[in-house]
Each structure stands twice: as structure tokens, then as C-alpha cells.
């Protein structure tokens, strides 16, 4: 019986997910520009793993494979995870993280639409807890490493674990700008001096700050296409800015400037691509503000006072836990039942 609407807006889950993937391209392009093509290898690896895991899980769960495999959601998880881990990571790190994200964080909770946690961030959390050392060796941006690996050398390391003879891993990789800041602060150096180190650029890390700008570009596209609303990026970045600003005002020698925090690490990726995941996020406008503000605050706290190099992933997961509660308490009033009912 056809009793619902006979027409529908030409839109689909796969089209939405595809637009988000497209929005990641400027950031990825800048990534390649500054760090070389290794990231494309991990994105490809993650994509293949995600699709294979998705297909296998759908088969196991006795669900139709084709409509779900073509919804592009597994690809998006794969890309976000790949962008969150060091590009020069061994192949199995990407595979393990992605397979865990898709199989456990997504399908064991019921598949598309039912996962309470952001699968990519679960994958990241598993990797950073299980393989912390592999998660800290980030490629140095162009011109900063002692030596620069050719693409063939990068492939050899990713798949074989061997660097060209005479080159040590430390020579081609570095800690992230956030990580470096944290360890240097422990040596009682002032922020200003630390940020003068060659890995830092105008705002945050050399290279990574430009990638962050690429993500902003993609985020603007998502806002323009109305895939996301302004609530989450604005509340997340706003809270991060204000929190960082307060600490910076208290002690500029010990706490980096707010703009540093906005462009360092995964802040922009989180603001436009990770926290905006609708499935694991809240649904009401007010809820989105609370959710993102909480994530912004937690990100700062974990970054500055916690033990992990970045806080976005854990802040996201912690706020994911709160989503049902936030939704329940932020239901907007319905038609005619607002204050006064008029205007």
C-alpha cells in the first residue's frame, strides 16, 4: 500500500556521504603537497579494508550487501581514520584500525545509523592505546626532515618495514606540533621559544596548519551544501578558542595562543568532519551546541593536561556518550506550544 508521499527530493545517503568525501579533497591535496603521497597509500589501504570488512559483516549479519556497500559511509570512516594516523604507519596499523572501526564500532552495534560512537574515532582510540609508538612517528613536512624519502622508499617502509640502509626512522619523522609543545613545556621552556622551532609555522605546525586550512575550505563547502549546519563547528571552535584564550591570558608563557589550538592537530578535521557525524551526534540545534561546546572544552583539557598528543578523538567519544541525554533534554517546543504561541 502506497500511503506515503509519492515524490521525494533527489537525495540519498550515498550522495551525502560522497559530498563529505569530496569536501575532504582540499585537505588531502595539501597533505600530499606538504608530506608527500604516503597518505594516499594509507587512504587506499583503509578504503579497501573498510569495504571488505563492510561486505563481510553485512554477509555475516545476513543483510543486503549492495545497497549498504554503495552508501559510501564505510569509505568515509576509512578516510577519516587514515587522515588521523601517521601516513608512514605500517600497513597493518591502518588495516587493524579500519577493520575494528567497521566491524566492532559500526556493525556490532547494528550497522549504519545505529552506532553510538564515531567509528573512525574508535579505530583511532584502539590504535593509540594499543600501538602508541607507531602512532607518534609523523612524517616531517617538506624540507624539515634530515632526509626525504622517495615514494618508493615510503612504500617499502609501509609494506616491508624497511627504511633505506643508513636512514633511521627518527630522521624522517617527527612528533606532532602539539606533542612537541607538550614535551618541550615539560623541559620548562616558554611557549614562545618552543614555537620558534623549525616545525612550527605561522599559526601552528608547518604544513599541518595548511592542511587545516584545506579542511576549513571543505567545511565551507559542506555548510554551503547544507550537509552540516553551523552549530557544531561554531560551538566547537568557539569553545576551544575561548578556553585556550582564557588560559593564554592567565599565563602566555605556558599556554599557547588560541589560534594555535584552532589550527593544530585535528581541530578543523573534528569541527567540520568528525563531530558533525549525524549518526553519533545529537539531533536538536541546542543539543548540537552543547555537544560541540563540550567537545571543544574536553579537547583543550586533554591536549594541555592529558597524556595523549591530541584530544579531539577522546573528546568526541566522551561527548558521544552524552548524546542520548543531551537529545532528551533539548527537545524544542512544538508548533503552537512555544512561549505565547505567537511571533
Amino acid at each position: 500500500m502506497l500511503l506515503s508521499t509519492f515524490i521525494s527530493k533527489p537525495d540519498s545517503v550515498s550522495a551525502i556521504m560522497l559530498k563529505v568525501l569530496l569536501a575532504l579533497l582540499p585537505g588531502i591535496a595539501l597533505y600530499v603537497w606538504y608530506y608527500g603521497p604516503a597518505i594516499l597509500v594509507s587512504i587506499t589501504l583503509a578504503s579497501i579494508t573498510a569495504l571488505a570488512t563492510e561486505a563481510a559483516m553485512l554477509k555475516l549479519r545476513d543483510r543486503p550487501v549492495k545497497p549498504f556497500l554503495s552508501d559510501n559511509s564505510a569509505l568515509l570512516t576509512a578516510w577519516l581514520l587514515a587522515l588521523s594516523i601517521p601516513p608512514l604507519a605500517p600497513w597493518w596499523l591502518v588495516v587493524v584500525g579500519t577493520a575494528f572501526a567497521i566491524s566492532v564500532a559500526k556493525h556490532l552495534y547494528g550497522g549504519l545509523g545505529n552506532n553510538p560512537f564515531n567509528p573512525a574515532m574508535i579505530g583511532y582510540a584502539v590504535l593509540i592505546i594499543s600501538f602508541p609508538s607507531h602512532m607518534t612517528h609523523w612524517l616531517s613536512p617538506h624540507g624539515l626532515g634530515q632526509v626525504e624519502l622517495s615514494f618508493a622508499d615510503q612504500l617499502a617502509y609501509i609494506f616491508g618495514g624497511h627504511l633505506p640502509s643508513g636512514i633511521k626512522l627518527d630522521a624522517v619523522t617527527t612528533a606532532t606540533p602539539l606533542d612537541t609543545l607538550k614535551t618541550q613545556l615539560q623541559l620548562d621552556r616558554p611557549v614562545k621559544e618552543i614555537l620558534g622551532m623549525p616545525i612550527y609555522g605561522a599559526l601552528a605546525g608547518k604544513g599541518s596548519e595548511m592542511v587545516a586550512l584545506g579542511y576549513i575550505l571543505g567545511g565551507a563547502y559542506l555548510l554551503f551544501k547544507r550537509i552540516i549546519t553551523w552549530h557544531i563547528p561554531a560551538a566547537f571552535l568557539g569553545t576551544l578558542l575561548v578556553t585556550a584564550g582564557i588560559f593564554h591570558l592567565i599565563d602566555p608563557g605556558h599556554y599557547a595562543a588560541p589560534l594555535f589550538h584552532l589550527t593544530a592537530g585535528a581541530a578543523m578535521l573534528g569541527a567540520f568532519f568528525i563531530l558533525t557525524d549525524p549518526i553519533s551526534g545529537p539531533t536538536t540545534p541546542k543539543g548540537k551546541l552543547i555537544f560541540a561546546a563540550g567537545a571543544g572544552f574536553l579537547t583543550y583539557v586533554i591536549r594541555v593536561f592529558g597524556g595523549f598528543p591530541d584530544g579531539v578523538a577522546f573528546a568526541t567519544l566522551l561527548m558521544n556518550i552524552c548524546v542520548p541525554l543531551i537529545d532528551a533534554y533539548t527537545q524544542p517546543p512544538v508548533f503552537g506550544k512555544k512561549d505565547g504561541g505567537a511571533k
Binding site: V13, I16, P67, G110, P278, T283, T284, F335, K338
Partner: peptide, 26 residues
């Protein structure tokens, strides 16, 4: 005929479209 329905992804396009200010996804 519409393609087979997929699960709700909580995108809230329905809530944004609802003229009765409801939360259709809920």
C-alpha cells in the same frame, strides 16, 4: 518507486523540514 529504505542516519533534514516543529527522526 523509491529505492529500498536505508536506516535513519539522524541527519535531521526531516526536523528541519517539519512545519509542526516536531523531531520526526525521534
Amino acid at each position: 518507486p523509491p529505492p529500498p529504505a536505508l536506516p535513519c542516519i539522524r541527519c535531521t533534514r526531516c526536523a528541519e523540514a517539519c512545519p509542526a516543529d516536531l523531531q520526526p527522526q525521534e
